[in-house]
Amino acid sequence: MKLSKTITTHEDVICLHGTIKKFGRVFTFNVYYVDGLLIDTGPMCVKDTVVEFAKEVQPKQIILTHFHEDHSGNADTLSKLFNIPIRTSSLTADLLKTSPTIPLYRRLIWGKELKAIEGDIVEHSISTDKYQFSIVKTPGHSIDHICLVNEVNGWLFSGDLFLGKRLLYGMKGESIPQLYHSVSNILSYDFDTVFCGHAGIVGHGHEALKAKQSFLQKLIQDTTSLYNRGWSEEKITKRLLSRQSAIQLFSGGEMAPKHLIHSIIKSISSKKSIQTN
């Protein structure tokens, strides 16, 4: 593994940005700090780097945007080292009560199994000495995903809600209809800068998320149209998301374009079933 890191500052927010090279691919992570609050904790494979960063900023509390190991991997270590609480949503707390099972490809990328975590549940807001953040539920990427918004400063800590303006593949279990709803919901808030878990600090973030909303809307509309014309899931995937990436092969299909299309068709079928009943 080859690791490179940079530390940047945007207003009062300090960002640890890391790039990991493994298996001929590049993976990124970001840990954010603002006024005593550490937002996500990076993957386990970079524990020493995250601990070094935390020693510099001296966090007073941690909040996790969701349970995935590249965001929660070092929470237990940091909580014990600095004797500070871990804040999570109730869903994240439930998922981390025991060590979640991580697919093999993710263990190879991000590190070993997660430790069980006892989190303090926060549902609506979280405060530091200087700032208050609204907690917004944003499922889709994961069922427990949350974002933090400070409208006064125009900040959105988006976890994995943004990632990019379009998607080429998705994780097994992701829901595109839920993601579209979450992006649409977050766009009702006033923010400009997005602090993304992987893309880093994104200027004109409201516009960037608006572009992602448009992409998701079109993907849902096109999938629905083709499905209603009798197209198979496989055929729709090839038509709308034809590119097969190396990560699909590496993950054994756990991360693939078909999961995006499958989640849309699953939602269509569910709605039809409800209407029939």
Rank of each mutant, 00 (worst) to 15 (best):
T6I: 10
T8G: 01
E11H: 06
V13A: 00
H17E: 07
K22L: 09
R25V: 02
V26T: 15
F27Q: 05
Y32C: 00
Y33W: 11
Y33F: 15
D35P: 05
T41W: 06
P43W: 03
M44G: 15
D48T: 10
V51H: 10
E52Y: 06
F53C: 06
F53H: 05
A54S: 13
A54N: 05
E56D: 04
P59S: 01
P59Y: 03
I62D: 10
I62V: 01
L64S: 08
H66Y: 13
F67I: 08
H71C: 03
D76S: 15
K80Q: 08
L81N: 02
S89V: 11
S89A: 08
K97Q: 14
I102G: 11
P103A: 03
E113L: 02
L114Y: 04
A116Q: 06
E118H: 12
G119H: 11
D120K: 14
V122C: 05
S125N: 11
I126Q: 03
I126E: 07
S127K: 14
K130Q: 13
C147N: 13
L148V: 00
E151A: 00
W155M: 00
F157L: 00
F157K: 00
S158A: 02
G159L: 02
D160K: 02
F162I: 02
K165S: 08
K165L: 07
K165V: 14
K165N: 12
R166Y: 08
Y169E: 06
G170H: 04
M171Q: 09
K172C: 13
E174K: 08
I176T: 11
I176Q: 08
Q178K: 09
L179P: 08
I186C: 07
D190F: 03
F195C: 01
H198Q: 02
G205M: 00
A208R: 10
L209Y: 02
Q213S: 05
Q217L: 11
I220H: 06
I220E: 07
T224R: 13
W231I: 02
K235D: 15
K238R: 15
K238E: 14
R239F: 09
L240A: 01
S251K: 05
G252Q: 08
K258G: 04
S263C: 07
I264Y: 05
I265T: 14
K266L: 09
K266G: 05
S267T: 11
K271F: 14
